[in-house]
Nucleic acid binder design. Structure first.
Lengths: 340, 340
DNA sequence: TTGTACGCGTTATCAC
DNA sequence: GTGATAACGCGTACAA
């Protein structure tokens, strides 16, 4: 049905070796022969089979991407960044969404193994979990025997390149800002403390509080799980208790939304009834002109960097493992202050 | 380096045909032989090469997806839906993001052609454009000679299956709601009128206005382009002119955001200073408890449906072309009313 | 029930 | 400069 290199060879009255040479710009081909072949290819709309090609060359130009949720602003941007670089290098991208599900993660890994992808960018479902699940994951990654870049979340004692975020520092900095604004009762709605990114952000908060000799009041530490719903629920609780903190740190974009939702519901005003600063950006909040302050990284850039790490690793498989920590940027819009 | 079926055959002391038979569960294999081979496969962590397999079988289980912007709530959800079904059927998904760029679209198509994908889900950069670009696109799609499902945007005189949205009806319905609320001066911020989805929504507005004998006032028709910025700019303009419409229809999620941004900036309140209803959902507006009313389709479901169409087409390549129009749902939150 | 031999569409290594 | 020919890793008639 679809044309092969043989068909082209016949039509051009040459051998397939010669066609292959013009396709790959390799070896000597007389100018006229080349032009003739090129014409036949154009006229007959021939595209060489990547499948046959990679079987023959024993290498693919395909990379795999496994992320937990494509319908998440952050990962959507990450994907955009990865895709951009993949495209620039004429590679192809196989996409997998795990929905934060271990079984799907396993299946994706097996599939990518069979597809013989050249490299993998992975955000694991878990993050630095010591259990059996992580052991299995690490083994499976080793079995792949290809360059891998971990993104956003990692594994304990990683042997792979990684692109992460300054979780500790960003939270530290956010806390510091609140402290310097003069707030005393500084609370936090943490992320999922089973994930390292959740832990680190929490630790950043504790670190800053300690360094500045602030009193850490357990009542103001609300353990969330990075979801809108939990943050909303926790926020309602502390709003209803009369003991409101002066300021709050929200540990990711969704936490921020849950918090703000609660504020609106109780008619509390940011920067008036309570101050706040978040981690992660929410495009929409900015568009709507909310005065919500936050520290965040550039997600698209994070995708680009991950793909670049992979490309470098292809170049030099033996170079030292590199972990790239994306810097945070501070976006102050006013909510960190309290104007009575 | 990586194991082949031959390695497994040797280790299991059988021929590779037998290994192939257990891999594919085809033909007769003695129970003991099968178990032995399965053990060898497990122990040596062998995964068959999808590349070699599809070359040999002359068919792939890979589908291509081309969307214009992954970092867009709508397409992120679409991708999630597609990925879900792809996964259920043990297929693999090759992802391309065109960034609404014709050249990238062309390159993606060529790449997917070489990859010999089994099917394609495509949201073209353009939508029912009569020009040369569309002719070229249609030709390239024909050249692919594979099942194709157009998603959200189509081409003139399409020969392919498609999954679209009730653009006309949804806009008609939105307009109708405003009319029945008693609004007289009903305006609209249109989408990109070069795209058919933009046109159809605009026509839905006109249709309802006409059917209900409403006077269409050109001053209240603001031509946007589906972007936040343009909608914001237009909104500012009509707010500053003293001649504000009673109610506004915003033609997609971004238009809505631009509009609301302007409202906030001028301290106008939705449902008090001006009524409004939009097309498309904005998760965040809902989360924040905005009272913004809208009509929308389920984007994740749209992805699922598109993938299902493709699967059906694989089953029966000759069945009649089917265009699936996703229904809209109405979400009234109050902004359609005007409470003085 | 199992093994042999060939083909899938390329690239690569040789001769010519 | 060009053309046979052998891989690449697998599936599959066909033979045994």
């Amino acid at each position: 049905m679809t044309l092969t290199i043989n068909d082209i060879a016949k039509k051009a009255k040459v051998s397939k070796s010669t066609v292959s040479r013009v396709l790959n710009n390799s070896g000597y081909v007389r100018k006229e022969t080349r032009e003739k072949i090129e014409n036949v290819i154009k006229e007959n709309i021939y595209y060489p089979s990547a499948t046959a090609r990679s079987l023959s060359k024993k290498e693919s130009s395909t990379i795999g991407v496994i992320i937990p949720e494509a319908d998440n602003e952050f990962f959507g941007e990450v994907l955009t960044g990865i895709s951009e670089i993949v495209d620039e290098h004429n590679m192809t991208l196989i996409f997998c969404d795990t929905s934060n599900n271990f079984l799907k993660e396993e299946r994706a890994l097996a599939m990518l193994n069979m597809q013989r992808v050249k490299g993998l960018i992975l955000t694991p479902v878990n993050d630095h979990n010591y259990g059996e699940a992580e052991k299995k994951l690490k083994q499976k990654l080793k079995d792949l025997k290809i360059p891998i870049v971990l993104l956003d979340r990692g594994v304990k004692n990683s042997e792979w390149d990684g692109v992460y975020f300054e979780n500790y520092k960003s939270a530290y900095s956010a806390t510091e800002i609140l402290i310097k604004e003069g707030h005393k009762k500084i609370g936090i709605i943490t992320g999922d403390l089973k994930l390292k990114i959740g832990q680190d952000r929490y630790k950043g908060y504790l670190g800053a509080m300690e360094d500045y000799g602030m009193e850490i009041i357990n009542e103001y530490i609300y353990e969330g799980n990075f979801s809108v719903e939990k943050a909303y629920e926790l926020s309602k609780q502390f709003i209803e208790s009369k003991d409101l903190p002066d300021a709050i740190i929200t540990c990711n974009n969704r936490t921020t939304l849950g918090f703000i939702k609660a504020l609106k519901e109780y008619n509390l005003t940011l920067g008036k009834d309570i101050a706040a600063i978040g981690i992660d950006s929410n495009k929409v909040l900015d568009i709507l002109g909310y005065n919500f302050s936050y520290v965040a990284r550039d997600a698209v850039e994070m995708g680009r960097v991950a793909m670049h790490r992979l490309l470098e690793r292809f170049e030099d498989p033996n170079k030292q493992r590199v972990e790239c920590i994306m810097p945070y940027k501070i976006y102050l819009k006013g909510s960190e202050k309290m104007n009575p």
